[in-house]
């Protein structure tokens, strides 16, 4: 049986999710920021974290975006093979973004051409990643991504002989080079394996996974935990002013890769690691 989903239903969901994600962080991210504030021992660091806690409350209670960079709208859609979408899917997504950014008083931060740089004035187009899955549902994840941290992200084409140590060193290198520019405390999304472009998509996807849920692969879960410890030992701290809290979470997504390669992408996100998820 084919299930019909209308383009307007998709637009409406995306509109609401753009607004929701920009005003309120998910419980896992809120929890990590609040815990960091409680545990932090650095004087300046604690002061900055207290501002971040207060900021989250003001944003939620007064409908002011958590950060003025309300991001480029990254949309992941897992579409069931038994769904038929009525209308143009890409246009439905962009319509949702357009309405969400307008009605939510969100910043329009997209330029039409990378060199001519004229603002499109409605934050479209979105960046859309579609995958086909079994079933008759559509799972939508909207992740508005700020560019202060995006600019500090990196892809490393490592060699198989670099192994686990090479992976850890590269992630450490990316976080150190991001430093104060990426609005620490950061959330680190890592894509490991696949090829050049897939590792980058995996890294972005990793940022949308619950920070309290470790990888299902034991060795990857261990690396996530070890990296979290190592990255916090850098002492970069909130705002780059030093402290115990440099990174709130590390999520790693993996995919099989070629015998000759070990692609690695590190997608850096600030503490405003936003996303909203819905199933239609």
């Amino acid at each position: 049986m084919i299930r019909e989903v209308s383009g307007s239903e998709i637009s409406k969901a995306i509109e609401e999710m753009c607004i929701e994600a920009n005003l309120s962080l998910t419980d896992d991210v809120r929890g990590r920021i609040t815990k960091a504030f409680k545990d932090e021992t650095g004087f300046v660091a604690k002061k900055i974290l207290s501002q971040l806690v207060e900021n989250m409350e003001i944003a939620k209670n007064e409908s002011i975006p958590i950060c003025q960079d309300t991001g480029m709208a990254v949309v992941f859609m897992e579409i069931g093979q038994d769904v038929h979408i009525d209308g143009d899917l890409t246009e439905a997504v962009n319509e949702g973004v357009r309405n969400g950014y307008e009605r939510g008083y969100l910043r329009k931060s997209v330029v039409k051409d990378p060199l001519i740089r004229e603002n499109t004035k409605d934050n479209t187009p979105a960046i859309l990643h579609v995958s086909l899955v079994p079933g008759d549902k559509i799972k939508i994840t909207v992740a508005p991504k700020g560019f202060g941290s995006e600019n500090m992200s990196k892809v490393y084409m490592l060699k198989p002989s670099d192994g686990e140590e090479g992976v850890k060193n590269a992630v450490l290198d990316a976080v150190k080079s991001a430093g104060p520019n990426a609005c620490p405390p950061m959330v680190v999304g890592v894509g490991l394996g696949g090829d050049f472009e897939l590792c980058a998509i995996l890294a972005k996807k990793a940022l949308t996974r619950d920070l309290d849920r470790r990888s299902e692969k034991p060795h990857i879960a261990r690396i996530e935990e070890e990296l979290l410890k190592t990255l916090n030992e850098t002492g970069i701290g909130p705002g780059g002013f030093g402290g115990d809290t440099t990174v709130l979470g590390v999520n790693i997504e993996t995919y099989p890769t070629h015998i000759a390669g070990l692609p690695l992408a590190v997608n850096i996100c600030c503490h405003v690691n936003r996303h909203a998820v819905r199933v239609l």
């Binding site: 900055i48 501002q51 971040l52 207060e54 900021n55 989250m56 003001i58 944003a59 007064e62 002011i64 975006p65 958590i66 950060c67 003025q68 960079d69 700020g146 202060g148 104060p180 609005c183 909130p238 705002g239 780059g240 002013f241 600030c270 503490h271 405003v272």
Partner: peptide, 13 residues
């Protein structure tokens, strides 16, 4: 000077 990045709601006040 630096202001705290990602505290835009607070700073707007």
């Amino acid at each position: 000077f630096a202001a705290v990045g990602g505290a835009g709601a607070l700073l707007s006040k």
